[in-house]
């Protein structure tokens, strides 16, 4: 199914004269292209009979929409208080060390974008790390090298 068709399907869920399909359509476009490029925004706008400017104004409001390219994988570490008091900052720093980039940046090989994010809603299972939008719980700094190897596509070697 083309992106255009997928957007028409999601559009049919909502009342005819509403713009409600904008968020789901942006999500579909981002899944297709990895980020919301000017071309992607135009494609969404055309499919919804609105303007790229409107789509960008909406997309720029929400943290999960990427208006610049990101890596193949997205690692998001919650650094709000419940995670921070049990070591989220050490987890961020471990990722920075393994990936060789700062939070907010993408590793040089283009594989992984690292971000610190606000509360992910898993506070009792801290530290929460969302890897490509799926939560890992109770993550410690020691767990980080294995996660990075997994994302870099290097198979885990067992044993010590």
């Amino acid at each position: 199914m083309s992106l255009y068709e997928a957007i028409q399907d999601v559009r049919a869920i909502y009342p005819d004269d509403s713009e409600s399909a904008v968020l789901p359509a942006l999500r579909l476009a981002q899944a297709e292209y990895g980020w919301l490029s000017p071309d992607a925004l135009r494609e969404v706008a055309d499919a919804l009979e609105t303007t790229p400017a409107y789509c960008k104004s909406v997309a720029s409001f929400y943290d999960q929409f990427h208006l610049v390219p990101i890596g193949e994988h997205l690692v998001e570490v919650c650094t709000n208080v419940s995670c921070a008091v049990v070591g989220a900052q050490q987890v961020v720093e471990a990722f920075e060390g393994e990936l060789g980039c700062h939070a907010g940046e993408t590793s040089a090989d283009g594989k992984v974008t690292l971000r610190a994010v606000e509360c992910l809603g898993g506070c009792g299972w801290a530290t929460i790390v969302a890897v490509d939008n799926h939560y890992r719980t109770h993550v410690k700094a020691d767990d980080v090298p294995a996660i990075v190897r997994e994302l870099q596509g290097v198979s885990e070697t067992h044993g010590d």
Binding site: S20, A21, L23, L26, V58, D63, Q64, F65, E118, C119
Partner: peptide, 20 residues
């Protein structure tokens, strides 16, 4: 798509209507 403010009920309605 990631915005704490959308937990406020009228912001949530705006978001559901495809707006900021």
């Amino acid at each position: 798509a990631g915005a704490y403010i959308c937990g406020e009920e009228t912001a949530l309605l705006e978001s559901l209507e495809g707006k900021r």
